[in-house]
Write a protein that binds this DNA or RNA. Sequence first.
DNA 1: AAGTGGTCTAGACCACACA
DNA 2: GTGTGGTCTAGACCACTTA
Lengths: 216, 216
Amino acid sequence: MPHDALPSERDLAEQFKVSRMTVRAAIGKLVSEGRVYNIQGSGTYVGSKDIFSKAPRLTSFTEDMAARGFTPSSKVISARRVAADRLVSQRLGIDEGDQCTHIRRLRLADGDPMAFEDVYIPATVLPLEDFQLSGSLYAQLAQAGYDVFRSEQEVTSVIVEGEEAAFLDVPTGSAALCVTRVSSTHHGKLVEFGRTHYRADRYSFRFAVTRESSER
Amino acid sequence: MPHDALPSERDLAEQFKVSRMTVRAAIGKLVSEGRVYNIQGSGTYVGSKDIFSKAPRLTSFTEDMAARGFTPSSKVISARRVAADRLVSQRLGIDEGDQCTHIRRLRLADGDPMAFEDVYIPATVLPLEDFQLSGSLYAQLAQAGYDVFRSEQEVTSVIVEGEEAAFLDVPTGSAALCVTRVSSTHHGKLVEFGRTHYRADRYSFRFAVTRESSER
DNA sequence: AAGTGGTCTAGACCACACA
DNA sequence: GTGTGGTCTAGACCACTTA
């Protein structure tokens, strides 16, 4: 039950015949997932049941939807070679006018529109002719030698209208959750600038935050 | 510089005359803040400069604004005693019709409207007559013996209109980032149900996510 | 092959909560 | 005062990356 105490770390260590540091490492993972929380001098307690994670993770749309209990699918609206404009070149750290692969996709959950996505990838990373209409984009990037490792995200709120609203099957002027991200490899190579507009009536972020003792 | 390698954990341990586990604990904190990241078998690297944290923290509006370089202020629009409706009672774990303190506040940054906030607190936690117009709400709750420790948040996108749009000084039909939260004490006592609408043109969340080796 | 982070041990002392 | 989590030691072996 939420807020019930776990056995103490020393008890768990004895019970499972491991050292206390090992128990702490395991509990630390659960804490970072928001499943349990610690109170110094008191104990470790079970978190609330309906929170998935304490912190957002780097997940693909496919993984995200599966975790939410939906069956994901995608429809590529367009895939073009374009010259990077000011915004795209800044975010991807390339020169204005450099060639990029621009992909627009409608993302569906259980067959209904969930999000509309714009992705820009430097042509040097994934040229248009190598892009496959089906299959995970991250998998294609990985195959090209660009494993996505880190993503810097910005979440805000936007109004959708026109063509985009039509694709999402919502009235013009509806609210959408806008997630903009720049993804990079281990080595800091910027491989993707993407913007996803999630239907506000179908999608939200949930997470738990704690006033930690590790506060600085 | 971002993506430069740190000295190895063994080197740091020797340099600072501490054990390697201590170095790892310190690096672990930096990782959780998104300042550095690890690659097994390779090294520890400096993260990008413009990301503040990897995970959202439990911060008050005041702390949040200060961290963003704004001077925060507040204006209480109303403070009333109300009976909990279905939604409020569900979220706060009380009975429908139970008395609550309902506070509406306009939150300003550098004197301009940033967010509009609705907060419901059980009257058993903070009765209307004890509510002070000025001063931090969390500080008042703490003084009443209810230290806010954990908060479960949901982020979505909404349209603001009417009175609320007027307070925020934006046109009716503008987008806003909606953060709904239920806050509790150490012991799981639910003390606050709040909803904040941030002006989309002035506010966004930024964070970094990593495909961790601790992925499950 | 050498170096790195990931995990683990079997203890120890400290700061804090709680009765 | 007793029990809890927080921190720390001084090693060890494993899995992985890199040259």
